[in-house]
């Protein structure tokens, strides 16, 4: 899941300042799961902005709408009938959502209300943790389902550093040592031998080596 957090209110207010009619657009997918840009958060942000405008004597029209997914044009098209009524879109989608809307409605400014953070997991209520870098060459099989690139503070591929203490990371003792987890996991299903191999430095060319990445699937095309 893609995680995000709302930008500071002042930053949002500065960005919407030039516009009078604003549509606040939420996304009911990833950013709803991480309580940053779903229907409730969109309603709360729109409400707070309307109050701020009223207190400042600024007559803005701020409406709200939440799409099921902001990064899929089949859903973004639901804005088609209403977008002409607004000067700007304030998007509570992730960076992909903001850009999908912007690409579809070239003539309308699309303002991001969130800072997109990372690919992560909902570890507990109110707790999201980063556990995937989207490297394009998944090595989780070798490391027992624990990614040392995303979860080891030093991104070590060949065993723990000397600072792992009692299963905690020396960089931040609140963080579990990824290598302790890797060894515990591989031990639990007798696969420690996967660590006998030396892993060369990560080949990052599969991540951004050739510019923005894309996936093409002929069987999924129209």
């Amino acid at each position: 899941m893609i995680t995000a957090e709302q930008k500071p209110m002042n930053e949002i207010r500065d960005m919407i300042a030039p516009y009078k009619r604003i549509l606040t657009v939420g996304c009911a997918s990833c950013v709803a799961e991480c309580a940053a840009g779903g229907e409730k958060e969109t309603g709360a942000l729109a409400s707070a902005l309307r109050m701020a405008c009223k207190m400042a004597g600024d007559e803005k029209i701020i409406h709200e709408k939440t799409l099921d997914r902001q990064c899929v044009k089949d859903f973004v098209i639901q804005l088609e009938d209403v977008i002409k009524d607004y000067d700007a879109i304030l998007s509570l989608g992730c960076g992909a959502g903001v850009q999908a809307v912007a690409e579809m409605y070239n003539e309308v400014p699309v303002i991001p209300a969130l800072n997109t953070e990372f690919l992560g997991e909902t570890r507990d209520q109110g707790l999201w943790v980063e556990n995937c870098l989207g490297c394009g060459d998944c090595m989780l099989y070798f490391f027992g389902g624990v990614c040392p690139l995303a979860r080891c503070s030093k991104q070590l591929l060949n065993g723990p550093c000397g600072g792992s203490q009692d299963g905690r990371c020396e960089v931040d003792p609140d963080v579990p040592c990824a290598w302790q987890n890797i060894i515990d996991r591989l031990s639990s299903f007798n696969a420690l031998d996967r660590l006998e191999k030396i892993y060369p430095p990560k080949d990052w060319s599969k991540k951004r080596g050739a510019g923005p990445r894309k996936i093409i699937r002929e069987d999924q095309k129209r």
Binding site: K40, E41, G43, A44, S47, A48, R50, M51, K54
Partner: peptide, 11 residues
């Protein structure tokens, strides 16, 4: 009760 309910009342 959610945050949005409290804000809407104030708004």
């Amino acid at each position: 009760i959610d945050i949005v309910h409290l804000l809407r009342a104030l708004e």
